[in-house]
Amino acid sequence: MIEVRDLKKSFGSLTILDGISFRIEKGESVVIIGRSGGGKSVLLKHLIGLLKPDSGQVLIEGQDIVPMNERQLLKVRHRFGMLFQSAALFDSMTVAKNVGFAFRRDRSMPETEIAGKVARILEMVDLPGTEMKNPAELSGGMRKRVGLARAIIYQPEIVLYDEPTTGLDPIVSDSIDKLILRVRDRLDVTTVVVTHDMRSARRLGQRILMLHERKIYAAGTPDEIFQSKDPVVRQFIDGVSDPKEYLS
C-alpha cells in the first residue's frame, strides 16, 4: 500500500533522512520510533506529500506521489487522514465546523447530513455534544480527539498519527491509544504512528521501525524490538541518556 524507496531529505546543510526504504501493507499498523528531532515527523509528512524529498520515491498503491504537483496530490490525499502533533484545529471554527470541514468544502452533502455525521463521529471519539465548543475551550486530549474525528470522518484508507500522545498525561495517553486501536479495528484502516512513547509503540504497532541517525536502524515486531540486545535499540527503549550506565 505504502512504499518508500531510498528517500533522502536535507534542510540546508542538515541531512535529516538519508536513504530510507520500507513498505507498509494494507491494513497494517506500523509504529515509527526514534529520538526527538530525528526526522520521524518529516518522514511522516513525506508519506502524504506535505514535504518533497530531495530524491527517492513514495509510492501509494504503486503510484509515485513525489513528482505530483499540489493539485494532483489533493486527489491522493482523499485516501489519507492525519492527526497532527498539536492537533492543528482551525481556531476560528467550532468543533462541528472543524470536524465537518472536508464535507463542507466538497459541497456535495446537505448541511443536515453533515451535522449527523459530525455527531456520530464525535460520539465515536467519546466527545458527544461538543459541537458548539471552540478549540480554545478544549483540553489537550480533547483537541487530539477532535483532530482525529476530523481526520477519519470521510473514512480514509490510511491514517497517519504524528506523536498522538505527546504532552498528555498517562491516563489520557492510554485513552488515545485505545481510540487509535478502535479506529483501526472499526474502520479497517492502515495505521502509521510516529511516537517516542514506548508504551504506545508496544500497544499500537504490529511492526516497529526505528529511525536512528537518518536511517531505519531496526525493524521488527514489538516483541523483537523490545527484546533486542542491540545497544542503540536498548538505550532508546530503556530511556537511558548515558550508555555507560549499562556497565555499572
Binding site: L74, R77, A88, L89, F90, D91, R150
Partner: peptide, 11 residues
C-alpha cells in the same frame, strides 16, 4: 500546522 491540516483535508 493549520495550513498543513488544510492540505491533508484535500483543500
Amino acid at each position: 500546522e493549520q495550513i498543513d491540516a488544510l492540505r491533508t483535508l484535500a483543500t
